[in-house]
Amino acid sequence: MTSTWSAAARRALKNSHVQFLILGAALLLLPVLSANGIIKTSTLSTLGFVLIYAIVAMGLNLLLGYSGLISLGTAGFMGLGAYIAAYVQDNLRLGFWVALLAALVIPTIIGILVGVVSLRVRSIYLAIATLCISEILLKTFEQAEWFTRGTAGKQSTFPVIFGIHTDRRFMFSVIVIALVLIMMLTHNIVHGHLGRALHAMRSSEVAAQAMGVNVLKYKLFAFAMATLYAGLGGALYLFFLRSSYPSSWNLFLSLNVIAMVVVGGLRSIFGTLAGAFVIFAVPELVLKELPVVGDIPGLPYIFSGILIVVVIMFFPQGLKGLADRVRHALTPRPPSVTKDAAVVQEATR
């Protein structure tokens, strides 16, 4: 009896959705630890932002990792999500759910419009077009005071969800739930028909077209998902921090999200989470605490920038590739080419 149980448990553990749920359950312990004073509130906040950026980065991974397209508009769309959430909740007083929905839908629609215009010719135009949209959005955040209160910053409150007045710890749990749902959604997308089409498109656009993949449609799909995730991340950011300033949504946030995807490993869900931790939490929790070095201005930028360059040059599969290699070295396997070994081969080629 016990052996069948353990076999079933082992099989369940291999299921990605079960892994996501276990991760979520573990993360839900953090607010409890924080309430008991075991971890600092500031640490909980930092980790909350890591999870928010992980959500945004997973969207960008669909675009960058699976479709091979670059967006420089992540920060703009995230900021748009944040301001819309604040405006709908605090100015229109329509409540949490409507605010969340608006923060998802409006950036996505704008994203699709930008994609339709820029993706027709050359993929790289998307990067330039999103750079431009990002500048436009940033300017809007500074100028449209009725909407954003300009450089003074938009202040907001913790939302009321199902009649519960939330606080920072509660919002952390909401973020965890959103993260787990997003991980599941992303997993479904990349491991099915949609993901195959994205793979085909990135690997060879001509072959994809010959197989009937409407390349423009799937590029748009990937970009729309990236915008949707950014909008969600923005809304969660606002509800977690309760304020938003235009300066938070500049190009360097977009670049940092790219760094998270690249460092974590293209096309890896857990890798992206790890990447978000390295890029956001390490400068915040570790570098700042270092003597002398910690006071250097611009250090987080250099940290992210150098990591991007080094990872692309020497570890194209990022942290995920490193983890695969370590796992491969530790587990004895039959000599035939297994899936993992082939991954390593690809990575080292």
């Binding site: 091979g68 670059i70 790289i124 670049l255 940092n256 790219i258 920038g305 991007i308 360059v309 692309i312």
Partner: peptide, 20 residues
């Protein structure tokens, strides 16, 4: 795309280096 990303990474490096 990898090359493009590298030039994006360089932005951050120079941006961080200049004030230092």
């Amino acid at each position: 795309v990898g090359k493009e990303i590298v030039t994006l990474g360089l932005i951050m490096v120079f941006l961080g280096l200049a004030p230092i």
